[in-house]
């Protein structure tokens, strides 16, 4: 219980001009923890993900991260090479649209191998071996390794995006609606894959979703956002089974019972 947190967000605030993105968000995340950020469109959850992943600069507040060497660093103070190295080694980012997270013009194998080449792998056979291994782990047939992701279905593309992110054994993965836009049956398979990979690899995850079922299946903790602010947070099953805030009660009551 006393181990150091992996990531600490303090008072994160983002304004787009006069418009509020999110306000005063603070939390800590430990290794292996899955945090779901839920809320409807425009609630600020994607802004928060952008701030955490350094894609956006905060108007106020800090994000600190425990680097692989054990030092706790303010992400705003990382040099650009350090930031890029972090993004492609210790972090992953699975986007809602696989087209935004993949290189659609190169093969599946190159998509998975890219991060390895970026961190200095120069042995083709080893790169290809690692890519093949990861394709297998995300249930993509070995004979598709040289195919373009353009020939893949939506679910396959999303699985490929996951492999591309996990190949460098990151400790923290950001996910932005990873199952959005997929058929229900495809969603179920993807969720199960994410769930087992997260558990097997001990990944810390910040997942943004508007789907409470996704949050319940994957996350340990939940943060409910509305109009840029966190209005309720806690243990996932507690927030979903005993919601306190009026808005959370509305969200929970809006879910169809299965």
């Amino acid at each position: 219980m006393c181990e150091e947190p992996l990531l600490i967000a303090e008072g994160l605030t983002k304004f787009y001009g006069a418009r509020l993105g999110c306000r005063d968000v603070s939390f800590t995340l430990h290794a292996g923890e899955v945090l779901a950020v839920v809320g409807e469109s425009g609630s600020g959850k994607s802004t928060l993900l952008g701030l955490l992943s350094t894609e956006l600069a905060p108007s106020a507040g800090h994000v600190r991260y425990s680097m692989r060497d054990g030092s706790l660093r303010d992400l705003a103070e990382l040099s650009e090479p350090e930031r890029r190295l972090l993004l492609r080694t210790d972090w992953g980012f699975v986007r809602q649209s696989p087209e935004a997270g993949l290189r659609m013009a190169v093969s599946a194998g190159a998509n998975v191998g890219e991060r390895l080449m970026a961190v200095g792998w120069r042995h083709y056979g080893n790169i290809r071996g690692a890519a093949a291994d990861w394709l297998g782990r995300v249930e993509i047939a070995a004979d598709r390794i040289d195919d373009s992701p353009k020939s893949f279905s939506g679910g396959m593309r999303q699985r490929l995006q996951i492999a591309r992110n996990l190949v460098t054994a990151p400790r923290l993965v950001f996910m932005d609606e990873p199952t959005g836009g997929l058929d229900v049956s495809v969603q179920a398979r993807l969720l199960d894959l994410i769930r087992s990979l997260v558990a097997d690899l001990g990944l810390a995850v910040v997942i943004v979703t508007h789907d409470l079922a996704v949050a319940r299946l994957l996350s340990h903790r939940i943060m409910v956002m509305k109009e840029g602010c966190v209005i309720e947070e806690g243990l996932t099953d507690q927030v979903l089974d005993d919601p306190q805030a009026a808005y959370t009660q509305l969200l929970v009551s809006s879910v169809l019972q299965s």
């Binding site: 806690g234 243990l235 099953d237 507690q238 089974d241 005993d242 306190q244």
Partner: peptide
């Protein structure tokens, strides 16, 4: 029971 388990606040 649910309070003891932490499922209810």
């Amino acid at each position: 029971l649910k309070m003891i388990y932490g499922n209810y606040r």
